[in-house]
Design a protein around this nucleic acid. Structure first.
Lengths: 123, 123
DNA sequence: GACACATTCATCCTTTTGGGTGAATATTGC
DNA sequence: GCAATATTCACCCAAAAGGATGAATGTGTC
């Protein structure tokens, strides 16, 4: 699953590719149509599309000499799920850390009412 | 905002870096501590940390010769927001497309009860 | 001051990415 | 069969990423 995530993240980490996905959200389009708005060569767009296909974000349907591309949101949704799970995990750990620090502070305060934060390392 | 997104996505698109973030979710750690579980050189880990810092996902607090690293979830949350907005946009457009196709089908069916999908291009 | 430790800097190497150009391939249309 | 069209393939180039190693810098400790 980790490699899969990498492909999706890399595919999304480029403005041209995000723009291509935006175009495909409006429906199927041929490679040439997708490439039209960009000021780069058709070949470069073709390479971007291959990276999107590698991530599974774009599906290709070949009809004669036309290659119709369509948006495939599943990897995007899987990434969203991973991010939600990861965020929850982080929150839980960071909250626990916060709680531990507060408890430590309380103990410290009870023992020595002043001097709230003895720096563990100097300078 | 686009460049910012790029940095975050690129930072997350690597298993080593995701693992570093997982470690930091448990609290601050020095560079050496963060590097310990990995089988790569300390320098490589240092480079990964720099990429995480570039994305704003890691904050560095220097205390003498020790560099303490801490997780900073804000860019992660911004990415989550972007993904939710994008997903909603896609859903709206794809739903509209679906509806349009269904409507087209209905009209087609009303006019010619058989022959549901005349292929626009042959083979 | 001398030494150990933590971290980065400077290089080098290989792979990937993002861009380009020109040729090849496949399909359509006449 | 032939010309035009759609797309990819094969290279070339520069920049960046991910890895390594060895030197330099800054800090703590004795």
């Amino acid at each position: 699953m980790a490699v899969h995530l990498d492909d999706t993240l890399i595919a999304l980490a480029d403005e041209t590719r995000r723009s291509i996905l935006g175009r495909l959200a409006a429906g199927e389009a041929r490679v040439t149509e997708v490439a039209a708005p960009f000021d780069i060569s058709l070949n470069s767009v073709s390479k971007h599309i291959r990276i999107l296909e590698r991530a599974g974000l774009v599906r290709r349907r070949i009809a004669g000499r036309d290659h119709f591309l369509a948006l495939e949101p599943r990897p995007f949704d899987e990434l969203t799920q991973w991010m939600q799970k990861t965020r929850e995990f982080w929150s839980a750990r960071l909250d626990a850390l916060e709680a531990a620090l507060r408890a430590e502070d309380a103990i410290e305060k009870a023992r020595r009412p002043s001097h709230p934060h003895p720096p563990r390392r100097k300078k």
